[in-house]
Simulated assay, not measured.
Amino acid sequence: MSMDPSLVGRARALWEGLARVPVSFAPAGGVSVVVSPRSELCPVGWVGVVALGGSAIVTAPSDRAAVMVRDALGRLPLEAVTDGGLVRKALPVARVLGPAALSYVSPSGFRPVEAGALSVERIPAAHPDMRSLERVAGHEDAGEAALDEITSPAFVVREHGEVVAAAGYRAWPRRTAHIGVLTAPEARGRGLARVTGSAAVAHALGAGLLPQWRARRTASRVVAAGLGFEELGSQLSIEIA
């Protein structure tokens, strides 16, 4: 399937800016490695890799790390540079975060989901019921969704008065809306993530923002695809041993 060039261009501009030093995705493919101690592609002191639309950019925290990474990743095919298992074989790796799929949607590609009999409520992001949902969902899932960081309203579904699913987005640079979705364990598998996620995406598109869906798990990627998101690439963070 061909990728939407306007989505690829906007997504690349976002991550090029997050690198915090001048760097560009090579138009003909390949991997561009730069030194950027302040990079926001990854945790501080780590190596950040983002592949989008057939090429990749990489930020390294030091000149020494950049040389190691440039040599190691240069020997890998492009589709392998965000593969944690293959990168571990090429580099002395202490820890890896990801890979996470990066997906985006345009207004014309968005496939909204009707709530049907469900009622989607809009509440403040700081509402105590949001923290209750995070406790029920558990630390790992709540951290992945990062609903405590959203700058939009929260779009929620309740059952018996309790919030069992919620979605929202955090405003990122380049007019990007980073979507987060969370469902209580006992309420999963019933389409609630699509319903609340749809409301959050519609709100972002209405504000003229570019919705971004970052997902490590297959279930989350399926939800994004159901809403019309195009998977354009992936992200990996590497701590060099």
Results as ranks from 00 to 15, higher is better:
5 P>T: 13
5 P>N: 13
6 S>F: 09
8 V>T: 00
8 V>I: 03
9 G>S: 15
10 R>W: 08
13 A>Y: 03
14 L>N: 06
16 E>T: 14
17 G>I: 10
17 G>V: 10
19 A>M: 11
22 P>H: 10
23 V>K: 12
23 V>E: 06
30 G>Y: 15
32 S>P: 01
32 S>C: 04
37 P>I: 04
38 R>P: 02
39 S>L: 07
40 E>A: 09
41 L>P: 02
52 L>M: 03
52 L>C: 00
57 I>E: 03
60 A>S: 15
61 P>Y: 04
62 S>V: 09
65 A>E: 08
68 M>P: 06
69 V>Y: 05
70 R>Y: 05
78 L>A: 09
80 A>M: 10
81 V>F: 04
86 L>I: 02
93 V>P: 14
96 V>Q: 04
97 L>F: 10
103 S>V: 08
105 V>G: 11
105 V>K: 14
107 P>D: 07
109 G>Y: 14
114 E>R: 06
114 E>Q: 05
115 A>N: 03
115 A>G: 08
116 G>V: 07
120 V>A: 11
122 R>E: 14
130 M>T: 00
132 S>Y: 01
134 E>I: 04
139 H>V: 13
144 E>S: 10
150 I>Q: 04
151 T>G: 15
154 A>T: 04
158 R>E: 15
158 R>D: 15
158 R>T: 15
158 R>M: 14
159 E>A: 15
160 H>D: 11
160 H>S: 13
161 G>Q: 13
165 A>Y: 08
168 G>F: 09
168 G>L: 08
168 G>P: 10
169 Y>K: 05
170 R>P: 00
171 A>T: 06
173 P>A: 14
174 R>W: 02
174 R>T: 06
177 A>F: 08
178 H>E: 08
180 G>C: 13
181 V>E: 13
181 V>Y: 07
191 G>F: 13
193 A>I: 05
193 A>Q: 11
194 R>Y: 00
195 V>E: 03
196 T>N: 01
197 G>L: 03
204 A>R: 04
204 A>G: 03
205 L>W: 12
211 P>E: 01
212 Q>L: 14
213 W>T: 07
215 A>M: 01
215 A>W: 02
215 A>D: 00
217 R>V: 00
220 S>N: 10
221 R>G: 15
223 V>E: 11
223 V>A: 12
224 A>P: 08
226 G>M: 09
226 G>E: 05
229 F>R: 02
230 E>P: 09
233 G>D: 04
233 G>R: 00
236 L>F: 04
